[in-house]
């Protein structure tokens, strides 16, 4: 538990430069979700669908505009572009 916590502090969005918004990830690439900037509610909805920090996801569709499709644990989730820009991945 304690170790976990320390990890989290290091992996915050302001640390090592490799994080970027999900909206910049190319189609077909895999990424690890790091943080979600947004309301309590949005984080809750994402977490319930399996999208929470530490999870690996795959961008199935990113056509430059319109919503995203990501693959997470065998299911496909559509994420609006606005929301995708607030999801930090690595």
């Amino acid at each position: 538990m304690k170790a976990d916590k320390a990890d989290m502090a290091r992996e915050g969005p302001e640390s090592e430069g490799m994080t970027m918004p999900l909206s910049m990830v190319h189609e077909g690439a895999k990424a690890v979700l790091r943080a979600v900037t947004g309301g309590h509610e949005m984080r809750g909805r994402l977490a319930a669908m399996g999208l929470l920090p530490g999870i690996e996801l795959e961008v199935i569709r990113n056509s430059g505009h319109g919503p995203f499709v990501v693959g997470v644990k065998g299911s496909r989730v559509v994420i609006g572009r606005g929301m995708a820009s607030r999801i930090e991945v690595e």
């Binding site: 994402l46 299911s75 989730v77 559509v78 994420i79 609006g80």
Partner: peptide, 11 residues
């Protein structure tokens, strides 16, 4: 503001 879009895509 527009509500964020989030939806599962079934096979």
């Amino acid at each position: 503001e527009t509500t964020p879009f989030l939806m599962e895509l079934p096979p």
